[in-house]
Design a protein around this nucleic acid. Structure first.
Lengths: 226, 226
DNA sequence: GAGGCCAGTCAACACCCTGTCGAGTCGATT
DNA sequence: AATCGACTCGACAGGGTGTTGACTGGCCTC
């Protein structure tokens, strides 16, 4: 865990070293994992399944990934990158139309996660048992919490949002809610919000918690004017 | 799963049948589980650990519990019963002083879960891999969701809370938030609200989501009068 | 083109954990 | 004392993980 970093600075989760034809094997393993995840839970997939699905033997699997969890971690990396990209700079343009922008943010995350629900669900399931997944998820969440915290503070600064809870605590609570609600919606077990409604339900709670109203004012609008 | 119910109607999770001296063995297993859970995660505890801790051999363990997970399920039963008892009839007395009652509700749950955080954390961790735990937790959550939903509807009926999201969706979102926020606070990994503040943070989001204000009016108070 | 290096490959092994089976012990009935 | 049911465990089967050591074949070097 102390050497061999990729050009982007991330710790490589795949092959131990070198570069060569084995690239397609690595992607075959990843593809097999995503495919199998669509039919059964992560815990019911053995390394042998992954290896055979990629056309190699079990020991050879270890040449490409140090463990089954590392495969999932790689998959999670992709999803979070996609989610981050989808979020873009929406939060920087909040004041234009707060309600529309917050909705856009939530809807984009919803789309990004929903598009890879099997991976997201599997990660949520192993987060309990795997410190690596837990750490990575914590990092990702921390990043979003900070962004939301900054956005709340900025909305307060321009007078659109009233003071209240520490912005960080509020950001943690709202992000946590989203995570858990999405999980239930995607997993479909236990009480869940219908997928069709989930974005608007989350949005409503966000707006009321941040602005005390579901129709926050855009920039430079005098108080009381719609 | 079709016979042998306890007096209360619950499916017994412990010994297969009969009653006798083995009672203390059963409690010894439970006690060992709670003790071990305090020092390491559930996944790192083997059935052998549980058995030896209770002074019996591994096969004998199976006389008392069908699996390791069943032990955890029994522990979870206790905690949820305690939480339900702690909640009491607080929601029926909401109108007296909404803010104080909601706070009481959240604070009591916090105390109940916090008092058995190791068990709660372990359950959250295996929920991903164990259908039984998932089902039980879903049931418990459903019960609370229904109670909160009814309370919201009643607050709306008396004019204390404005209309808005379907009460059930709102109840799901708020309960989900609490679950996830508590988990982070107790687990201590990732962004979390400080334990000292968590009740008030959650309360604030509940109140604004339900009432659009943090100071909802008590019963029969004319609008605008504190 | 002989030698060597190295990515890539897998059979076989050591290990750990789970769940079950069958043979037993022991105290309380009948 | 014969029987029954609660209770106990040694031993086994099965399935998963991670490692080892030998082998292959392309490619570079001298």
């Amino acid at each position: 865990m102390t050497s061999a970093r990729t050009p982007t600075g991330a710790v490589p989760r795949g092959r131990r070293a070198g570069r060569s034809t084995g690239d397609d094997r690595e992607t075959a393993i990843l593809a097999t994992a995503e495919r199998l995840l669509r039919e059964r839970p992560f815990g019911d997939i053995s390394i042998d399944d992954l290896a055979r699905g990629a056309g190699i033997s079990r020991p050879t699997f270890y040449f490409y990934f140090p463990s089954k969890d590392a495969v999932l971690l790689t998959l999670l990396d992709r999803v979070t990158e996609e989610a981050n990209a989808a979020a873009g700079d929406v939060l920087d343009r909040l004041a234009e139309d707060p309600r529309a922008r917050w909705r856009e943010l939530i809807a984009r995350f919803h789309a990004a996660f929903g598009g890879h629900r099997d991976v997201v669900l599997a990660c949520a399931q192993v987060r309990g048992t795997n410190p690596e997944v837990r750490r990575l998820w914590a990092e990702v969440l921390e990043r979003w919490v900070r962004a939301v915290q900054a956005a709340i503070e900025s909305e307060r600064a321009r007078g659109a949002a009233p003071d209240g809870l520490p912005a960080r605590d509020l950001a943690i609570a709202l992000n946590s809610m989203n995570e858990r609600v999405w999980y239930a919606t995607f997993a479909g077990d236990g009480p869940a919000v219908a997928e069709r409604d989930v974005v608007d339900v989350l949005l409503d709670v966000w707006l009321t918690a941040i602005y005390r109203t579901t129709t926050p004012p855009p920039v430079r609008s005098p108080a009381g004017t719609p």
